[in-house]
Protein backbone atom coordinates (compact mmCIF):
# COMPACT_ATOMS: atom_id res chain seq x y z
CA UNK A 1 0.00 0.00 0.00
CA UNK A 2 2.79 2.40 0.92
CA UNK A 3 6.25 2.67 -0.59
CA UNK A 4 9.11 1.78 1.70
CA UNK A 5 11.56 4.66 1.36
CA UNK A 6 14.36 3.48 3.61
CA UNK A 7 15.53 -0.08 3.67
CA UNK A 8 16.84 -1.12 7.02
CA UNK A 9 18.64 -4.31 7.83
CA UNK A 10 16.39 -7.06 9.10
CA UNK A 11 12.62 -7.14 9.34
CA UNK A 12 12.29 -4.49 12.04
CA UNK A 13 13.11 -0.98 10.82
CA UNK A 14 15.59 1.24 12.60
CA UNK A 15 14.45 4.06 14.80
CA UNK A 16 11.18 2.67 16.04
CA UNK A 17 9.76 4.14 19.21
CA UNK A 18 10.75 1.77 22.01
CA UNK A 19 12.15 3.10 25.30
CA UNK A 20 15.96 3.39 25.42
CA UNK A 21 17.45 0.09 26.55
CA UNK A 22 14.26 -1.87 25.83
CA UNK A 23 14.89 -5.60 26.06
CA UNK A 24 11.88 -6.32 23.90
CA UNK A 25 13.26 -4.35 20.94
CA UNK A 26 16.43 -6.44 20.94
CA UNK A 27 14.36 -9.60 21.26
CA UNK A 28 11.98 -8.98 18.38
CA UNK A 29 14.84 -8.07 16.02
CA UNK A 30 16.70 -11.25 16.90
CA UNK A 31 13.56 -13.40 16.68
CA UNK A 32 12.61 -12.03 13.26
CA UNK A 33 16.19 -12.55 12.01
CA UNK A 34 15.64 -16.27 12.57
CA UNK A 35 12.02 -16.58 11.44
CA UNK A 36 12.44 -14.53 8.25
CA UNK A 37 9.97 -13.03 5.82
CA UNK A 38 7.74 -16.03 5.48
CA UNK A 39 6.09 -15.31 8.81
CA UNK A 40 2.73 -13.92 9.94
CA UNK A 41 2.87 -12.27 13.36
CA UNK A 42 0.04 -11.78 15.87
CA UNK A 43 0.59 -9.09 18.47
CA UNK A 44 -1.84 -8.10 21.21
CA UNK A 45 -2.08 -4.57 22.61
CA UNK A 46 0.91 -3.97 24.89
CA UNK A 47 4.54 -2.93 24.50
CA UNK A 48 4.97 -5.08 21.36
CA UNK A 49 2.17 -3.08 19.77
CA UNK A 50 4.71 -0.31 19.26
CA UNK A 51 6.01 -2.61 16.50
CA UNK A 52 2.50 -2.95 15.06
CA UNK A 53 2.89 0.74 14.51
CA UNK A 54 0.67 3.77 14.69
CA UNK A 55 -1.72 5.04 12.05
CA UNK A 56 -0.29 4.63 8.57
CA UNK A 57 3.09 3.39 9.85
CA UNK A 58 4.21 -0.03 10.94
CA UNK A 59 7.55 -1.21 12.30
CA UNK A 60 7.35 -4.75 10.96
CA UNK A 61 8.01 -5.90 7.42
CA UNK A 62 6.03 -9.13 7.66
CA UNK A 63 2.22 -9.33 7.65
CA UNK A 64 0.72 -8.89 11.09
CA UNK A 65 -2.51 -8.55 12.97
CA UNK A 66 -3.10 -6.84 16.29
CA UNK A 67 -5.89 -8.79 17.88
CA UNK A 68 -7.39 -8.50 21.33
CA UNK A 69 -5.31 -8.78 24.50
CA UNK A 70 -6.45 -12.31 25.31
CA UNK A 71 -6.64 -13.97 21.90
CA UNK A 72 -3.08 -13.99 20.55
CA UNK A 73 -2.92 -17.80 20.49
CA UNK A 74 -6.48 -17.99 19.12
CA UNK A 75 -5.73 -15.58 16.28
CA UNK A 76 -2.53 -17.47 15.51
CA UNK A 77 -4.57 -20.70 15.44
CA UNK A 78 -6.99 -19.08 12.98
CA UNK A 79 -4.17 -17.99 10.67
CA UNK A 80 -2.65 -21.47 10.88
CA UNK A 81 -5.97 -23.15 10.08
CA UNK A 82 -6.44 -20.93 7.03
CA UNK A 83 -2.89 -21.58 5.81
CA UNK A 84 -3.43 -25.32 6.28
CA UNK A 85 -6.70 -25.07 4.35
CA UNK A 86 -4.77 -23.45 1.51
CA UNK A 87 -2.10 -26.14 1.65
CA UNK A 88 0.51 -23.69 2.91
CA UNK A 89 2.71 -25.51 5.42
CA UNK A 90 5.77 -23.29 4.96
CA UNK A 91 4.67 -20.01 6.54
CA UNK A 92 5.50 -19.61 10.23
CA UNK A 93 2.72 -18.27 12.44
CA UNK A 94 4.09 -16.34 15.41
CA UNK A 95 2.16 -15.24 18.48
CA UNK A 96 4.22 -12.57 20.21
CA UNK A 97 2.77 -11.43 23.53
CA UNK A 98 3.87 -10.07 26.87
CA UNK A 99 3.48 -11.69 30.26
CA UNK A 100 0.08 -10.10 30.95
CA UNK A 101 -1.31 -11.15 27.59
CA UNK A 102 0.04 -14.65 28.17
CA UNK A 103 -0.12 -15.75 31.79
CA UNK A 104 -3.08 -13.60 32.83
CA UNK A 105 -5.77 -12.75 30.33
CA UNK A 106 -4.45 -14.85 27.43
CA UNK A 107 -3.88 -18.09 29.33
CA UNK A 108 -7.16 -19.70 28.31
CA UNK A 109 -6.73 -19.27 24.56
CA UNK A 110 -3.07 -20.28 24.84
CA UNK A 111 -4.04 -23.46 26.67
CA UNK A 112 -6.60 -24.20 23.94
CA UNK A 113 -4.03 -23.87 21.16
CA UNK A 114 -1.45 -25.96 23.04
CA UNK A 115 -3.99 -28.71 23.73
CA UNK A 116 -5.17 -28.79 20.11
CA UNK A 117 -1.58 -29.11 18.89
CA UNK A 118 -1.93 -26.09 16.61
CA UNK A 119 1.36 -25.53 14.81
CA UNK A 120 2.17 -22.05 16.04
CA UNK A 121 5.26 -20.48 17.55
CA UNK A 122 4.33 -18.61 20.71
CA UNK A 123 6.86 -16.24 22.24
CA UNK A 124 6.17 -14.60 25.57
CA UNK A 125 8.40 -11.60 26.17
CA UNK A 126 8.29 -11.35 29.92
CA UNK A 127 9.01 -7.92 31.32
CA UNK A 128 7.29 -8.98 34.52
CA UNK A 129 4.43 -6.45 34.63
CA UNK A 130 1.97 -4.51 32.50
CA UNK A 131 4.56 -2.04 31.27
CA UNK A 132 2.62 -0.43 28.47
CA UNK A 133 -0.19 0.66 30.78
CA UNK A 134 2.21 1.99 33.38
CA UNK A 135 3.90 -0.82 35.31
CA UNK A 136 1.02 -2.65 36.98
CA UNK A 137 1.69 -6.12 38.42
CA UNK A 138 0.86 -9.25 36.44
CA UNK A 139 0.91 -12.83 37.67
CA UNK A 140 4.46 -12.98 36.28
CA UNK A 141 5.68 -10.15 38.52
CA UNK A 142 8.29 -11.61 40.90
CA UNK A 143 8.05 -11.85 44.66
CA UNK A 144 8.45 -8.49 46.44
CA UNK A 145 8.77 -6.42 43.26
CA UNK A 146 7.13 -3.01 43.48
CA UNK A 147 4.75 -2.00 40.74
CA UNK A 148 2.05 0.64 40.64
CA UNK A 149 -0.46 -1.95 41.87
CA UNK A 150 1.91 -3.60 44.35
CA UNK A 151 3.37 -0.46 45.91
CA UNK A 152 4.53 -2.37 49.00
CA UNK A 153 6.04 -5.20 46.95
CA UNK A 154 4.23 -8.19 45.44
CA UNK A 155 3.29 -10.53 48.27
CA UNK A 156 3.22 -13.67 46.12
CA UNK A 157 5.62 -15.39 43.75
CA UNK A 158 5.21 -15.52 39.98
CA UNK A 159 3.14 -18.01 38.03
CA UNK A 160 5.25 -20.65 36.30
CA UNK A 161 4.41 -20.43 32.58
CA UNK A 162 6.87 -23.14 31.55
CA UNK A 163 5.32 -25.68 33.89
CA UNK A 164 1.93 -24.83 32.42
CA UNK A 165 3.29 -25.40 28.91
CA UNK A 166 4.98 -28.64 29.98
CA UNK A 167 1.73 -29.81 31.58
CA UNK A 168 0.27 -29.67 28.03
CA UNK A 169 3.19 -31.87 26.93
CA UNK A 170 3.80 -29.75 23.83
CA UNK A 171 6.65 -30.85 21.57
CA UNK A 172 8.89 -27.87 22.34
CA UNK A 173 9.05 -25.33 25.14
CA UNK A 174 12.03 -23.28 26.30
CA UNK A 175 13.07 -20.37 28.43
CA UNK A 176 15.53 -17.84 27.08
CA UNK A 177 17.08 -14.55 28.00
CA UNK A 178 18.07 -11.56 25.92
CA UNK A 179 21.60 -11.61 27.35
CA UNK A 180 22.31 -14.86 25.48
CA UNK A 181 21.33 -14.28 21.85
CA UNK A 182 23.01 -17.41 20.51
CA UNK A 183 20.97 -19.58 22.90
CA UNK A 184 17.81 -17.59 22.10
CA UNK A 185 18.21 -17.90 18.33
CA UNK A 186 18.97 -21.60 18.52
CA UNK A 187 15.69 -22.03 20.41
CA UNK A 188 13.69 -19.87 17.98
CA UNK A 189 15.01 -22.02 15.13
CA UNK A 190 13.91 -25.17 16.97
CA UNK A 191 10.49 -23.66 17.61
CA UNK A 192 10.13 -22.73 13.93
CA UNK A 193 10.95 -26.30 12.90
CA UNK A 194 8.61 -27.90 15.44
CA UNK A 195 5.64 -29.71 13.99
CA UNK A 196 3.15 -28.58 16.60
CA UNK A 197 2.87 -25.83 19.17
CA UNK A 198 6.08 -24.39 20.57
CA UNK A 199 6.55 -21.83 23.29
CA UNK A 200 9.53 -19.72 24.31
CA UNK A 201 9.38 -17.76 27.53
CA UNK A 202 11.95 -14.97 27.32
CA UNK A 203 13.23 -12.92 30.25
CA UNK A 204 13.10 -9.39 28.85
CA UNK A 205 14.28 -6.67 31.26
CA UNK A 206 12.56 -3.30 31.08
CA UNK A 207 14.54 -0.25 32.24
CA UNK A 208 11.41 1.87 32.55
CA UNK A 209 9.48 -0.55 34.73
CA UNK A 210 12.32 -2.11 36.67
CA UNK A 211 13.93 1.27 37.15
CA UNK A 212 17.54 0.73 36.17
CA UNK A 213 19.90 2.62 33.85
CA UNK A 214 19.03 1.79 30.20
CA UNK A 215 22.66 0.86 29.53
CA UNK A 216 22.39 -2.05 31.96
CA UNK A 217 19.71 -4.18 30.25
CA UNK A 218 22.11 -6.99 29.34
CA UNK A 219 23.79 -6.90 32.74
CA UNK A 220 20.43 -7.13 34.51
CA UNK A 221 19.36 -10.05 32.32
CA UNK A 222 22.66 -11.88 32.92
CA UNK A 223 22.58 -11.27 36.66
CA UNK A 224 19.06 -12.77 36.84
CA UNK A 225 20.48 -16.04 35.56
CA UNK A 226 23.62 -15.87 37.72
CA UNK A 227 21.55 -15.37 40.87
CA UNK A 228 18.99 -18.08 40.05
CA UNK A 229 16.14 -15.63 39.46
CA UNK A 230 15.86 -16.98 35.89
CA UNK A 231 16.86 -20.40 34.58
CA UNK A 232 17.68 -21.34 30.99
CA UNK A 233 16.22 -24.69 30.01
CA UNK A 234 14.20 -26.41 27.34
CA UNK A 235 11.69 -29.20 27.09
CA UNK A 236 11.66 -31.19 23.87
CA UNK A 237 9.63 -34.28 23.11
CA UNK A 238 9.15 -35.08 26.76
CA UNK A 239 12.72 -34.46 27.91
CA UNK A 240 14.06 -31.48 29.80
CA UNK A 241 17.55 -30.02 29.34
CA UNK A 242 19.07 -27.40 31.60
CA UNK A 243 21.08 -25.20 29.25
CA UNK A 244 23.09 -23.33 31.82
CA UNK A 245 23.46 -24.05 35.48
CA UNK A 246 25.69 -21.67 37.45
CA UNK A 247 28.23 -23.56 39.55
CA UNK A 248 27.33 -21.36 42.45
CA UNK A 249 24.47 -18.89 42.58
CA UNK A 250 25.46 -15.29 43.24
CA UNK A 251 23.60 -13.56 46.09
CA UNK A 252 20.18 -12.33 45.00
CA UNK A 253 21.20 -8.89 46.27
CA UNK A 254 23.49 -8.58 43.21
CA UNK A 255 20.36 -8.69 41.07
CA UNK A 256 17.97 -6.59 43.12
CA UNK A 257 20.41 -3.80 43.92
CA UNK A 258 20.53 -2.96 40.19
CA UNK A 259 16.81 -2.21 40.14
CA UNK A 260 14.59 0.46 41.62
CA UNK A 261 11.60 -1.89 41.83
CA UNK A 262 13.25 -3.70 44.76
CA UNK A 263 14.44 -0.52 46.48
CA UNK A 264 13.65 -0.17 50.15
CA UNK A 265 13.39 -3.88 50.95
CA UNK A 266 14.31 -4.54 54.58
CA UNK A 267 17.15 -6.91 55.44
CA UNK A 268 14.55 -9.46 56.49
CA UNK A 269 12.76 -9.16 53.16
CA UNK A 270 16.04 -9.59 51.25
CA UNK A 271 16.75 -12.70 53.30
CA UNK A 272 13.26 -13.97 52.64
CA UNK A 273 13.71 -13.36 48.95
CA UNK A 274 17.09 -15.11 48.94
CA UNK A 275 15.49 -18.08 50.67
CA UNK A 276 12.61 -18.14 48.19
CA UNK A 277 14.87 -17.87 45.11
CA UNK A 278 17.10 -20.76 46.22
CA UNK A 279 14.17 -22.96 47.15
CA UNK A 280 12.40 -22.24 43.88
CA UNK A 281 15.58 -22.73 41.87
CA UNK A 282 16.29 -26.10 43.51
CA UNK A 283 12.70 -27.19 43.14
CA UNK A 284 12.82 -26.34 39.45
CA UNK A 285 16.16 -28.15 38.89
CA UNK A 286 14.84 -31.22 40.71
CA UNK A 287 11.68 -31.23 38.62
CA UNK A 288 13.64 -30.85 35.38
CA UNK A 289 16.11 -33.57 36.33
CA UNK A 290 13.19 -35.91 36.85
CA UNK A 291 12.17 -35.45 33.19
CA UNK A 292 15.71 -35.32 31.80
Amino acid sequence: MHDIKHNSKGLIPHGMSACAGCGLELLIRKVMDVLGRDTIIIIPPGCAASFSGFGKETAIKVPGFQGNLENTAASAAGVRAALNAKGNTHTTVLGFAGDGGTVDIGLQSLSGALERRDRIVYICYDNEAYMNTGIQASSSTPYLAKTTTTPAGKPTARKNLMQIAIAHDIPYAATASIYNIADLQRKVKKAKDTDGPSLIHVHTPCPTGWRYDPSKTIEVARTAVQTGCWLLYEYQNGKATINYRPKELLPVENYIKLQGRFKGLTDEQIQEMQKYVIEDFNKCIKRLESVA
Binding site: A74, L83, A85
Partner: peptide, 23 residues
Protein backbone atom coordinates in the same frame (compact mmCIF):
# COMPACT_ATOMS: atom_id res chain seq x y z
CA UNK B 1 -10.23 -27.30 8.99
CA UNK B 2 -12.30 -27.76 12.15
CA UNK B 3 -10.79 -25.91 15.10
CA UNK B 4 -12.35 -27.25 18.27
CA UNK B 5 -11.99 -24.18 20.43
CA UNK B 6 -12.20 -23.64 24.18
CA UNK B 7 -14.59 -20.65 24.15
CA UNK B 8 -16.70 -18.43 21.95
CA UNK B 9 -14.14 -15.67 22.35
CA UNK B 10 -11.65 -17.95 20.64
CA UNK B 11 -14.25 -19.22 18.17
CA UNK B 12 -14.74 -15.77 16.68
CA UNK B 13 -11.02 -14.93 16.99
CA UNK B 14 -10.09 -18.01 14.96
CA UNK B 15 -12.73 -17.34 12.32
CA UNK B 16 -11.74 -13.68 12.02
CA UNK B 17 -8.02 -14.40 11.68
CA UNK B 18 -8.74 -17.21 9.22
CA UNK B 19 -10.77 -14.95 6.94
CA UNK B 20 -8.02 -12.33 7.11
CA UNK B 21 -5.70 -15.09 5.88
CA UNK B 22 -7.88 -15.59 2.84
CA UNK B 23 -10.47 -18.31 3.37
Amino acid sequence: QYVRVESEHTALSVATAAELTGV
